[in-house]
Design a protein around this nucleic acid. Structure first.
Length: 296
DNA sequence: AATCGATTCCGGGGCGTGGG
DNA sequence: CCCACGCCCCGGAATCGATT
């Protein structure tokens, strides 16, 4: 079975956050409604619905209908999801889709925060196996839409194509339908500053070498980091020829860090998407630029 | 002023769900 | 059955902002 599971707060909330990457990095999939306590202690769908009504009755916009859908999500998460099932978890911060295989036989309850802020307590262990970009998703589901909008839903349409896609080996070029971008100087600088802090927090001793034009921005011993900042996942990440060459040369020692945040304040809190050895682990579309000069 | 591209806005479509 | 909804999202249009 294939499940689509969102690990995020509702987008209609103004401070909605996406925890997909935290889950990915922690080897977990997690959903909210913490106040319910351990789901293993809940015996039936009806009991679950009752507890939800008690705890969230006021927030449920459409009463019984909403409660019912929440109950369905949690009940499926507890009962219908099985070890070996596939999970697809969309990440709105990076515009990517994490694909994994459920690795624990039952749900467990854990309120400790993952890497960043995610404290969604209903969890299952996941072995994440792939990261797909929009182009790859669209090659499976034209239009990029699959599964439902609820926190958890089963993916039915295109399930066979998805399985076939996973078996096929990674193709070199997957077209991406998104606009290309010029690097934004100011955001580049902001992102670099954030990267320095973030690396420092993780125990590195980073040196900023961006001004040297070597093909990456930050050096920590043998590790080289290229930092990209963007305001939304809709704008593409572009590697210059210089950067590409360095990435090819240093392979695993070269990592691209992508910071996606709409405002400077948000950027200070953002954890980056990390792409080690980018020329091998991701699909890039080469772009050739021409210019025309009028002959004298 | 005009042009070009990035960014934001928003209409509406789509799939899977439980309620009635 | 049908309907209305959800921890949604695409893609065109409008807006913004930088550069000439």
């Amino acid at each position: 079975m294939i499940w689509k599971i969102f690990a995020r707060l509702p987008s209609k909330w103004n401070d909605a956050e996406d925890y997909a990457r935290e889950c990915y990095q922690a080897g977990i999939i997690a959903i909210g409604w913490n106040k319910l306590g351990d789901l293993n202690a809940t015996e039936s769908f009806a009991e679950l619905r009752g507890k939800l009504k008690e705890g969230w009755g006021g927030e449920a916009e459409s009463g019984a209908k909403t409660i019912g859908q929440w109950a369905g999500t949690l009940w499926s998460f507890r009962n219908k999801v099985k070890a070996g099932d596939y999970v697809i978890c969309p990440d709105s911060d990076s515009g990517r889709y994490y694909v994994g295989i459920i690795n624990s036989d039952s749900v467990f309850y854990d309120e400790t925060t993952l890497g960043g802020k995610c404290n969604f307590a209903h969890r299952r262990k996941v072995k994440w196996v792939r990261v797909l970009n929009l182009g790859e998703i669209q090659s499976i589901w034209p239009g990029g839409r699959f599964g439902g909008n609820q926190t958890l839903s089963e993916v039915e349409k295109g399930a066979e194509r998805f399985m076939k896609f996973l078996k096929k080996k990674r193709s070199a070029f997957v077209p991406r339908s998104r606009v290309s971008s010029h690097p934004d100087m100011e955001w580049g600088k902001e992102a670099e500053a954030r990267a320095m802090v973030w690396l420092g927090e993780r125990g590195y001793q980073p040196t900023n070498v961006a001004h040297l034009n070597v093909g990456w921005d930050i050096t920590c011993g043998n590790s080289r980091f290229e930092v990209k900042g963007r305001k939304s996942p809709r704008s593409a990440v572009r590697l210059s020829q210089n950067e590409w060459r360095a990435a090819k040369k240093f392979k695993r020692e070269y990592t691209v860090l992508i910071f996606t945040a709409p405002t400077k304040e948000a950027l200070q809190m953002t954890t980056p998407m990390q792409i080690p050895d980018p020329t091998r682990t991701e699909s890039w579309t080469p772009r050739v630029m021409y210019e025309y000069i009028l002959a004298e």
